[in-house]
């Protein structure tokens, strides 16, 4: 017996929510200087997009959106693994995870 939740709120609300989450993520990236927190904010942004996709998928009755979310998760997992490895390596070399230290690109 499948439990199906009905009578969900209008989709616009989900749009507003995911936009808000995304903006918070961007704000975090801009605000913080610790690379690990920036990484987390990026995860937040990814999740807001995931939420958006799932809502569209549910409301339009199309499974493809959820498959995409699945793939996004895959990519996010890979990204976090590589990103953290980079972070460890940077920390080892520079003794800090502050992005202001990474200014070798100065022209």
């Amino acid at each position: 017996m499948k439990e199906v939740i009905t009578n969900t709120p209008p989709q616009n609300w989900y749009l507003v929510l995911s936009t808000l989450l995304f903006s918070i993520g961007v704000m975090g990236v801009l605000l913080r200087r610790n690379a690990i927190i920036i990484l987390m904010c990026i995860e937040l942004m990814l999740n807001s997009v995931n939420l958006l996709l799932v809502s569209f998928s549910a409301y339009a009755g199309n499974t493809d959106g959820q498959v995409f979310v699945f793939f996004i998760m895959v990519v996010a997992a890979a990204e976090v693994a590589v990103g953290l490895a980079l972070l460890v390596s940077i920390y080892r070399n520079l003794g800090s995870t502050d992005i202001d230290v990474l200014s070798k690109l100065k022209g």
Binding site: V26, V29, L30, R33, I99, D100, L102, S103, K104, L105, K106, G107
Partner: peptide, 18 residues
């Protein structure tokens, strides 16, 4: 001249991107 734009400050780059 354009070289000076590259400050090397990652935060600033992100800001410009947004």
């Amino acid at each position: 001249t354009l070289r000076l734009v590259q400050t090397g400050n990652t935060g600033f780059y992100i800001f410009v991107m947004v």
